[in-house]
Write a protein that binds this DNA or RNA. Structure first.
Lengths: 230, 230
DNA sequence: CATCACAATATTGTATACAATAATGTGATG
DNA sequence: CATCACATTATTGTATACAATATTGTGATG
């Protein structure tokens, strides 16, 4: 049932040596600015202004903009430039529909393909998360959650799924942040992740799918409630 | 169960007016060149050469390259430029795993959300496809297949899923073309699509999922066989 | 003859200048 | 005063020039 494991070693002959170009720096700078709300939804993005913000020249900056556009974070209109993308209720539904299809699959695949080490790492991350909650360290909580997902995505052994997911998850990042301001949602979310982690640890495919799905459904409803308020 | 249908009309206030920039032209030119094999897998892409090929300047061209890179058609190495992406057996598995998760969902959603008109259009496309097969018009067959998928993706009412799928489908385009050279596979593929269309037409969610999945599985195995030969 | 150092070349990464299109302001006119 | 035409400005789209890095070639040296 496994997917040609002997092929795995052929893939990366050379060291990737991380990308240190200005384009990449500009992309990360813009991405962060959007994710933490310094650039707000609907706001117009003027290239020359972004140049001074990021320190990059227009050519490098524009390539970064193209990257963010394909990720869905910003939208472009011919000869009218970019805007930070807005999230409608409709888009929320679509994104969570996509996430539900892919993240449940990730959970299933993880139960079959992850190493024991990865399962241990996942449980460590969960423990860290519990600690963050008791410490009220919401900043660190986001980081640890990213680590948790990182382990999950790696353990499922499918880079394509990961790429598709990372883009859409970025787009609801700030909503998820807001969600964590609600103590009830914080506790509920952690409880769901406990259940998911337990299922993954016992390599119970069906339970993992169920836990993943109910976590996503709860998150979606919380996000929709949040949007309905404002 | 439907997703806020009253929201739909708010989205597009202005005419999209299709993108006629050189970047877009360069992107399409490169995409076509890769899809129909004029630029072969693994081949190095030198920017200056692509400029004369596409008629665009380097700045426009590079933005097109960034687009193709995020789509996975080409790969980049720092200061070493781009290459046309190669497909390993592993990648085939990953792509079909992703497609299986999303296309089965698309089929299910279509049965619940498509209009009667869209269902009629789908059947028309299938009829066209039958005609192509009897005429041995393989060129037109590809076009009609794209129309078929276009209807399917539109009918499921989820742009996010569509975006994720279109990229990965592009990447196995030339393999699918090769596949259609095999008469047995041609006939089998059409038979699978007949079954899928019937399920979609009767709005039978489970049957649609099953038909979609078996179509994908058959296509995947055919692709893997093709790769094993060469 | 193989191998290494290093210069020469090629190619990508970056910055800036120019052209095309859209947004804005201003004044004439009813 | 409202509105339209049109000039002005701003902004994006495109082309080209320059800098940094990688690749290639060449010759000295063991």
């Amino acid at each position: 049932m496994n997917t040609a494991p002997d092929m795995a070693a052929i893939s990366e002959p050379e060291t990737p040596r991380l990308d240190t170009t200005l384009r990449e720096k500009a992309r990360l700078a813009l991405r962060d600015a959007i994710l933490d709300g310094r650039l707000k939804a609907g706001e117009k993005l003027v290239e020359r202004e972004l140049c001074v913000l990021t320190g990059a020249s227009r050519s490098a900056l524009r390539e970064a903009l193209v990257l963010l556009e394909t990720g869905g974070l910003i939208e472009r209109q011919s000869y009218r430039g970019y805007r930070v993308a807005k999230l409608s209720t409709q888009k929320i539904f679509e994104i969570f529909e996509l996430r539900a299809a892919l993240e449940t699959l990730v959970a299933e695949l993880f139960t079959e393909r992850a190493s024991d080490q990865e399962i241990a790492d996942l449980n460590d991350a969960l423990t860290d998360l519990e600690q963050c909650l008791t410490d009220f360290d919401l900043q660190r909580m986001r980081t640890v959650k990213e680590v948790y997902y990182e382990i999950l995505f790696t353990g499922c052994r499918n880079v394509e799924i990961r790429r598709s997911l990372e883009n859409v998850i970025d787009r609801i990042y700030h909503l998820r942040s807001h969600l964590m301001n609600n103590p009830d949602r914080r506790e509920a979310s952690l409880q769901e992740m406990r259940r998911l982690t337990a299922a993954l640890t016992s390599r119970d495919r069906l339970a993992a799918r169920a836990a993943s799905l109910s976590h996503l459904t709860a998150a979606r409803d919380a996000v929709l409630n949040l949007m309905a308020e404002s």
